[in-house]
């Protein structure tokens, strides 16, 4: 692509403004859909694994040490290496990349679900038990609604990491938003390189914003009304801190 100036900011702007880059199977919208497809598929698998496991451990308290150390080891795993290793060992297809990303998404979701359930005040749980609720009812009607905000904080941290890291998939298999960075470097097209980086950053911030809204609206109205305004503000600040600490972009 030809640019009118050698200034990198100008090239970035021209690449982003060029309508050719906004259409077709190699255009920005299609790449965003591919990227979000990876994120959706990864989160689906990660939640199928992490949500039941986190609920079980949070509710029963069994296996706590095991999952805490498991989470620690998974967190240390370099996702870039796992994506490339799976690409070589299995195939350069969609699923090996998704499995590598699932390893990244499980720790934040699992620790969010587990600590959300475990953080519910034990007197509340005991009160429910003494009223004759079964263990399953306690989990679904008491622990999940009360721990939901922390649980969603974990999911949000997971989504954020997967959105960020799915860019590396482009180096093994040419899809997703990382493609603009790969191509930009290969053909020395700085407009595409920096423009692509802008698109990645905007998508990440937008997705995180949507997750923040979901987190806010998914809270049981009973919990929202019960707290005085000042205190709930402080609480959500604390939980956001929990959520942000669970993260770490890649």
């Amino acid at each position: 692509m030809d640019y009118s100036s050698s200034n990198l900011f100008v090239q970035m702007g021209e690449w982003l403004a060029n309508p050719d880059n906004w259409s077709g199977s190699r255009g920005i919208p299609m790449r965003i859909i591919e990227h979000l497809g990876y994120v959706g598929l990864t989160m689906l698998f990660a939640m199928l694994i992490a949500v039941p496991l986190g609920m079980y451990v949070g509710h029963t308290g069994k296996g706590r040490v095991l999952i805490v150390s498991g989470i620690g080891i998974l967190r240390a795993l370099p996702t870039l290496g796992m994506v490339f290793l799976f690409a070589l060992l299995f195939s350069r297809g969609v699923l090996p990349a998704v499995w590598a990303l699932v390893l990244l998404a499980v720790p934040p979701v699992l620790s969010g679900v587990y600590s959300g359930i475990a953080s519910v005040n034990s007197t509340v749980v005991d009160a429910a038990r003494s009223m004759g609720l079964t263990e399953w009812q306690i989990l679904s009607r008491v622990e999940v609604p009360n721990g939901l905000q922390v649980m969603l904080g974990g999911v949000r941290a997971g989504v954020l990491q997967v959105v960020a890291t799915a860019t590396v998939v482009a180096y093994a298999k040419a899809d997703g938003l990382g493609v603009f960075l790969v191509e930009g470097t290969q053909v020395n097209d700085n407009g595409r390189l920096f423009g692509g980086a802008v698109v990645i950053a905007v998508v990440a911030v937008a997705v995180d914003g949507i997750m923040a809204l979901l987190q806010r609206f998914a809270i049981s109205p009973g919990l929202r009304a019960a707290r005085p305004a000042a205190r709930s503000e402080k609480e959500s600040g604390r939980q956001e801190a929990v959520a942000s600490a669970q993260g770490g972009t890649t």
Partner: peptide, 17 residues
Amino acid sequence: SILYTIPSLAMFVFLPL
């Protein structure tokens, strides 16, 4: 928290600029 949201690969590309 907004800066934290920006993926590292994008950040590595921006910063030299």
